[in-house]
Design a protein around this nucleic acid. Structure first.
Lengths: 156, 156
DNA sequence: AAGAAATACTTCGATAGTCAAACTATCTCA
DNA sequence: TGAGATAGTTTGACTATCGAAGTATTTCTT
């Protein structure tokens, strides 16, 4: 797939950029809507992201998590209170340093984690729909480009 | 760009999906951060989106706008209050139907509109960086796929 | 090893954004 | 003309958030 024309891709950018805006704006509401209909109706999108950030695998501390989801430590305390109370998250005081609180998912939390993962996987599939492997590679590269760009912006 | 190979792109999906999650999660904070550093520090991301939704071109009514940004009418009233007070938006009572409030951007609002547009255009450029026209076409198609998928989900 | 400083988290008080319900003004149509 | 519908606003209650002060624990300093 080489070739090309003189018509600058700048033309694409305009519409693509608009699409991207719509996309980012809608994504939250789609997630919100999907949530409200499912078995996790009592959770907000932020709750879900917090649970997702805790993740299945490595234990995280409360303050790590606060940084990850951009909450103040105090807000994180109450956010965790909520999630503990609803049965998605467990507080585990660290043995080695009894100040720190390690967070883990309960069984229910793990179920939600997988559901969230599946939700996004379906989105991805929709995005790649009908594409060849080559095209999929391109797409992946583009997503990576964007991710890196945003991460650089965040660091500044 | 045709098709080929049996090796399912499912492999791609996993990582791409993860990238997509990170991306959607980060996008808000990048925007927030960019906002805080710029000359529009007094605005929230939601404010900016509301202003952007009002748009330069066609006048919108308050309730149209409320639907677009997923706010209740009453919340929209106070959101507009904020934006009027800060000098980005104008309320114009419709001549033909004096119940309805048409919304328009002030000069300052238009400046913000363009800045927001430029911000996203840069994101898009980063995403397309180094791509041929063909590749760009694929990417555009993918974005469109995703947008449609999300919009369908929203409608359900 | 004792006291001072730093760290991790929590509690508290204040604030801001949200919604639903009640309200006002205006329009439609029968 | 009057009953009901519509567009937006006001009100009251609620919730998430933050910053500041507080508690418990650890680390550093001398």
């Amino acid at each position: 797939m080489k070739k090309n024309s003189e018509t600058a891709p700048a033309v694409h950018y305009r519409t693509a950029s608009q699409t991207l805006i719509d996309l980012l704006a809608n994504a939250v509401w789609v997630e919100e809507g999907a949530l409200k209909r499912g078995p996790f109706a009592a959770l907000t999108v932020r709750d879900v992201h917090t649970i997702y950030a805790i993740s299945m695998y490595e234990e995280k501390t409360a303050s790590q998590l606060a940084r990850m989801v951009h909450l103040s430590p105090s807000a994180m305390t109450t956010a965790i209170d909520r999630l503990v109370q609803k049965g998605y998250v467990e507080r585990r005081r660290s043995k080695s340093d009894r100040r720190v609180v390690k967070l883990g998912l309960t069984h229910q939390g793990r179920i939600l984690y997988r559901a969230h993962q599946a939700f996004h996987l379906k989105m991805t599939q929709a995005m790649f729909h009908g594409f060849s492997d080559d095209a999929a590679g391109i797409l992946e590269k583009a997503l990576d480009n964007l991710k890196n760009y945003l991460q650089d912006l965040l660091k500044e």
